[in-house]
Nucleic acid binder design. Structure first.
Lengths: 234, 234
DNA sequence: CCATATAATGACCACCTGGTCACTGACCGG
DNA sequence: CCGGTCAGTGACCAGGTGGTCATTATATGG
């Protein structure tokens, strides 16, 4: 659960080196496939020491993991504060871009998260995913509620379904940024900031207005008459 | 690449037993963590036999994999045929539910797919994901184009972004059905058919109309006259 | 300078992995 | 009944795993 006193008494640079190597290993290989031998080789300490510090591979992971949770929590709080009085769609847009920023700042942490979702044999997987779920729900639901209250969102929305859609899309946006082949040709994968901004704006616009032709009056163009012929074909 | 002649000459029930055990093992453990020893134990044949049939663990996986691709391809073709003359949103709704049906029919195949996305060390990962990407693009893009042509979709849509959104949401809908904690409280995970139908309908409605309050006139259906006033504002 | 407490070490353990190959025994044509 | 073919076998291999612990090195205090 917690690094031993012996570990805490180490000088800071050594502690950093150790944790850094561990994060690296877990982010590349997930839990099971991560190798304690490789870690100690890279760090340059004896294997026995690692086990003295953390008890087991799982204990080591636990430490890394708690640290990651703290990072995420802190980041979420900050974004929420920064956007609290903005329009609903602006909040979503900014939150998405904040997610991108987080990934850029902590790419390995995000990779560990991805591994965790889809690898059955992570320790604490269930508890962890439960936490992420709570994060997401606790983060998005109030935003949706506020959006309805502010009059940004249709009041007849099903909150749960709305949260699901937002969660799904924001999550996928982030995944598409760092997992190849997940962006379905939208060129989000490792895109430049400017492109990401544009994509995020597009995506939020679509959230707002949907994909369907406006039911009534889309004054946009020419000959409004033809656009409103009752029959479906043109 | 291909099972040896020796394997093909086995009687059908034995072949099935072998492939079935392999699919099971891969779907539970992914590639790396899958154990050939466990497979042969379960099947009740000697380890040497498996290697005689498939050459290597990777060769065995290749056979499983090709079979899976064929299943998916077939399923996609069928859905496309069945829905070809429906309204855009109806096509999306039906496609999503067809996805659910596929997962119910081939849960292990879907699990292998999920593992593959997020596990770096799958053999052929890149080629495979490329294929899935093509499937998705080739499947959705024509539907979007047809939707615009039919007048179901706003003609000003960015096709790539639209495909991305659809892909993201449909994929997540399916994931939420079979991975816990991914449905953000929408109760899609292992839901009953009736609930799924309702959720799919809701989700398609949101795609159509978006979440934002309608810009102008939300006269809720009455007075059809107002629906076709030529001028932009009401 | 020694005695003691404490931390670092790496050889070692049991176990598991994918893969090999000399052997076995069933079958078949002559 | 023989010789030959051939699929099936499982003991065996080298290499890796997480984890242990007797031994050694280092620091501390009297």
């Amino acid at each position: 659960m917690v690094p031993s006193d012996i570990f805490n008494k180490l000088d800071e640079s050594k502690k950093t080196r150790i944790l850094d190597a561990a994060v690296d290993e877990f982010s590349i290989h997930g839990f099971r496939q991560a190798s304690v031998n490789r870690m100690v080789d890279r760090i340059g300490i004896a294997k026995g020491s690692l086990f003295q510090y953390f008890g087991s591979k799982e204990g080591l992971f636990h430490v890394i993991f708690n640290h990651a949770v703290e990072l995420v929590r802190h980041s979420l709080r900050q974004v929420k504060r920064e956007t609290s009085d903005a329009d609903f769609f602006e909040r979503i847009r900014k939150s998405t871009l904040a997610g991108i920023r987080f990934i850029k700042g902590h790419p390995r942490v995000y990779r560990i998260y991805l591994k965790m979702i889809f690898q059955e044999d992570f320790p604490l997987r269930a508890e962890f995913l439960q936490q992420v779920h709570l994060f997401s729900a606790e983060y998005l639901r109030p935003i949706v509620r506020a959006g309805i209250a502010r009059g940004d969102l249709r009041p007849d929305l099903d909150t749960e379904m709305t949260v699901f859609l937002l969660d799904a899309l924001m999550d996928r946006f982030l995944q598409a940024y760092c997992v190849p082949f997940l962006d379905a040709g939208a060129h989000i994968y490792q895109a430049e900031d400017a492109d990401l901004e544009r994509r995020a704006a597009q995506f939020v616009d679509m959230l707002r207005s949907g994909m369907g032709v406006p039911k009534k009056d889309n004054g946009a163009g020419l000959e409004p008459a033809t656009m409103c012929t009752g029959d479906g074909n043109v």
